[in-house]
Design a protein around this nucleic acid. Structure first.
Lengths: 209, 209
DNA sequence: CAATCTGTCTTGACATTGTCAAGTCGTGCG
DNA sequence: CGCACGACTTGACAATGTCAAGACAGATTG
């Protein structure tokens, strides 16, 4: 019907002001529920109500979508992390909490950010820069927590430890193997609090605050 | 040539006693270098020198390959972990080290084990059981480290903390964002040692050994 | 010894995917 | 009025995962 005049083929949804956003959100939803492997160009295009080639216009290729997600994720993350750091009196505890909360609230972004094979940090300049900014924020936290660099003579030891704990808990929560082991009546929110308390106290011995 | 008599089409490599092993090893090599997304049925078949359908005989489908890798990984991991636990006088330090070393030495396996969308722990019974055994070993470690459950009233807090630190460092090392930040002259082996020392000391405050 | 079964593969086909190439169409601008 | 440009579209193409249907060597059975 109405093929002669060559109208937009998909009259219902198409030509929204930001197809770009729709593509990104569609991809993020798929990543969060089914993993990045499940993202198909044609599938996200269908979800956005556009042709299978429309996403290419904005992102170039599949890797471009992931790079855009990665950049957005690292930028939002750095924003939240820096905001916490600039307004807390207990940096270790509050930043750990911000970190884990960000990860569990932005599973789609986080999954891409820490999958180097798809993150685009090595191929897409903007994604790399956003990642670097996030890493700088982490170093700021370590310096704030222990200006003298704690008990270790390796200046990276404290940042790595903080990062490992936060990243470790985040991925364990996100990827399920931990949640499956936890009693159902314990909300993950409470678990995060307990963990950050426990972790903060554990680290105390390495740097006398 | 020689098509008439219907001989094996690939005379050079084919019909080795264990195509199964070749398929698994091919897949693992791809996963370790390019990620699990890059694993293609037809590619691993080509590497193993067999037809594109041979892997299906052993694994059913793509997910079957991942499930087999996952099971093998968790089994080996539990073996190593238990062995360390049964022969150490410093369980926290040595098991942390065993954990991280296993991960970095078995990147292909580890990547699959902790990607629930492909690990098969929810669909393949044997993969699930192997995972449960590994988790039980972790609980053993926590009990050994702190029989009274440390300073927390949540019995999972110590296992989760140990796991988060080990898993966090492992994935950060494996997936690159950390290695890229570390001075080139520091071998990751030394880093692991420093980390386990630092982490062990950090945890000391929560449980007086 | 012939027939049958079974494990280990193989070739063939199909729908679906990522991506290249080449339009189409409205909108602004000279 | 013409025409370049952005935002798409339709149309290919090779490669992929998987279903179906053999092929064939060796063991089992009559």
């Amino acid at each position: 019907m109405a093929r002669a005049t060559r109208r937009p083929a998909l009259t219902t949804v198409a030509t929204s002001p930001d197809v770009r956003r729709a593509v990104l959100d569609g991809a993020l939803a798929i990543i969060a529920t089914s993993g990045a492997d499940a993202v198909s160009m044609r599938d996200v295009a269908r979800r956005a109500g556009v042709s299978h080639q429309a996403p290419y216009h904005y992102f170039g290729d599949r890797a471009g979508i992931f790079a855009a997600i990665c950049e957005e994720g690292f930028t939002r993350f750095a924003d939240e992390f820096e905001a916490t750091l600039n307004s807390t009196s207990d940096p270790a505890r509050d930043c750990l909490r911000t970190y884990v909360t960000f990860a569990t609230n932005n599973v789609g972004h986080y999954r891409v950010m820490f999958r180097p094979d798809i993150s685009g940090t090595s191929t897409h300049e903007q994604a790399r820069r956003a990642g670097d900014r996030a890493f700088a924020a982490l170093l700021d936290l370590a310096e704030r927590v222990s200006p003298g660099n704690g008990a270790s003579d390796n200046p990276l030891m404290l940042p790595i430890t903080l990062w490992s704990m936060a990243h470790g808990l985040s991925t364990l929560l996100m990827d399920g193997p931990l949640l499956a082991k936890i009693p159902a009546d314990m909300p993950s929110d409470a678990l995060i609090s307990q963990f950050t308390d426990f972790a903060t106290r554990s680290l105390d011995v390495q740097f006398n605050r």
